[in-house]
């Protein structure tokens, strides 16, 4: 691990201002991903700004009937919150499908959105990786790519975003609130928050340098049956091969988002619209233009079948 400076910020604005001053500075909260990556030399921040003391750890009602989740609310606390369990069960289920109890105790809401890919070549500093070292190439293309993306891929990168929580947030139309180094704030729709790899897979979100997430808000509850179906090789503590976040309304309409298939949580408006027609139609819409590899072609079938099973379960639940 490279030596780095460490300081604590006194306010969100102070944190953003401090970060903006130092190129290569990073925020640290739970550290469940960043510290691991620093130990193996994948992340090499010269300066860490600890945001843990910033009191961004409450869940509050918003004026429009939704909730504001502080950036530092731990995954365990968020999943167990009675309002979240009652009004946004999809989020609670997605959180509990991820990581382990110990990691969820430490991991934060904002940190979960910002976690890096689990591509094994990204983790191995001997290998080319455009995300870790822009311009070095992509070893996953033509290599071991069973976990990798099938939609929104580029010639530079086929990595997936590993979060479960973010997939639920996408289906729930969350908004990310931030503060910028100049003290101004902005609200970013979750749909726009994560980016596709394109030619710059090292860029993963629209956040500017120094911009700090302060909260994630959810609009007023939409009801319906909310299910999160995570498919994986072992029963626990594994990243999704694919995951399905589904909100099904009594009229057959709803929303669907996928994890494990793209560089960001994956949702398409025409797929939502196709839900009443069934899993095949929705899955075709979600995966239109899919580009698979030998290793991950099975994900196309898996998405359709996992969605069909989730839809069936949702219908059973509401009946």
């Amino acid at each position: 691990m490279k030596p780095f400076a460490y300081e604590r910020a006194s306010s969100p604005k102070d944190a953003a201002a401090k970060a903006a001053k130092t190129p290569g500075a990073k925020f640290i909260a739970g550290g469940t991903n960043l510290l691991d990556l620093m130990k193996i030399g994948v992340e090499e921040p010269v300066h860490l700004i600890d945001v843990n003391g910033l009191k961004l750890d409450t869940i509050e009602a918003t004026d429009d009937g939704g909730v504001r989740i502080g950036a530092l609310v731990r995954n365990t606390e968020l999943a167990a919150d009675t309002r979240i369990r009652r009004d946004y069960p999809l989020l609670s289920r997605a959180l509990l499908a991820g990581a382990s109890g110990q990691l969820r105790n430490k991991a934060t809401t904002a940190g979960n959105l910002l976690q890096r890919t689990r591509c094994p070549y990204f983790y191995d500093t001997n290998q080319p990786c455009n995300k870790r070292l822009p311009g070095s190439g992509c070893a996953a293309i033509g290599g071991f790519s069973r976990q990798h993306a099938i939609v929104g891929v580029s010639k530079s990168c086929i990595a997936t975003h590993p979060s479960d929580m973010a997939v639920a947030m996408r289906a729930l139309d969350a908004t990310v609130e931030t503060v910028r180094p100049d003290g101004s704030t902005r609200r970013i729709a979750i749909a726009d928050f994560h980016t596709l790899p394109g030619t710059t897979p090292n860029v993963e979100t629209v956040l500017a340098h120094g911009e700090l997430i302060t909260a994630v808000t959810l609009p007023r509850p939409v009801g319906g049956v909310q299910l999160y179906h995570k498919v994986r090789d072992r029963a626990s503590y594994a990243f999704a091969l694919v995951s399905v976040a589904l909100i099904l309304q009594p009229d057959g309409g709803g929303r669907v988002a996928l994890g494990g298939v793209a560089h960001k949580p994956w949702r398409k408006s025409d797929a939502d619209a196709a839900l009443p027609k069934g899993a095949k139609a929705a899955s075709d819409a979600l995966l239109a233009g899919a580009e698979t590899t030998h290793d991950n072609a099975f994900k196309v079938t898996l998405v359709e079948r996992a969605l069909a099973a989730t839809l069936a379960e949702a219908k059973e639940t509401s009946a």
Partner: peptide, 30 residues
């Protein structure tokens, strides 16, 4: 039977999934 495999990158000549996140062994829930 169900999960353990050191995946060979046949171009680069190494086991790609060389940590316990990539090389899965059964957990209690299995």
């Amino acid at each position: 039977a169900l999960m353990e495999e050191l995946v060979v990158d046949k171009r680069l000549g190494f086991f790609v999934n060389h940590d316990l996140a990539g090389y899965e062994v059964p957990v209690h829930a299995d």
